[in-house]
């Protein structure tokens, strides 16, 4: 499988590690809401179809990539940047 890292280009899956669901949002650092905290840790959708997920390019530039992938066909639909530089948009 190939993931296109926004900074490095298309790379073999072996350079990446799966880091979990890309649809969840962590509550603010100051939040004291237990339900939100628990939901962030434990609640997950498990779609049979397109799934937004986060991969870590640890064997490359060490940035994180937001990937939309179909869990039935494994086809990768989009790969987008994450991290401080993603606001600047495209590749370095």
């Amino acid at each position: 499988m190939i993931i296109t890292c926004p900074w490095c280009g298309p790379r073999d899956l072996r350079e990446f590690t799966y880091r979990g669901d890309g649809t969840i949002t962590r509550p603010d650092i100051d939040s004291e809401n237990v339900d939100l905290a628990a939901s962030f840790v434990f609640d997950r959708e498990n779609p049979a179809g397109d799934h937004l997920e986060i991969w870590h390019h640890g064997g490359g530039c060490r940035s994180h990539v937001l990937v939309k992938r179909n869990t039935l066909t494994h086809k990768i639909i989009t790969c987008g940047p994450l991290g401080p530089f993603s606001k600047n948009g495209a590749k370095a």
Binding site: T17, R19, H56, H64, L82, P84
Partner: peptide, 16 residues
């Protein structure tokens, strides 16, 4: 290392 990189890229990208 991976744990901390995740927080800086995904959760708190505003932290320098």
């Amino acid at each position: 290392m991976a744990h901390m990189e995740y927080y800086l890229d995904v959760i708190w990208p505003e932290l320098k």
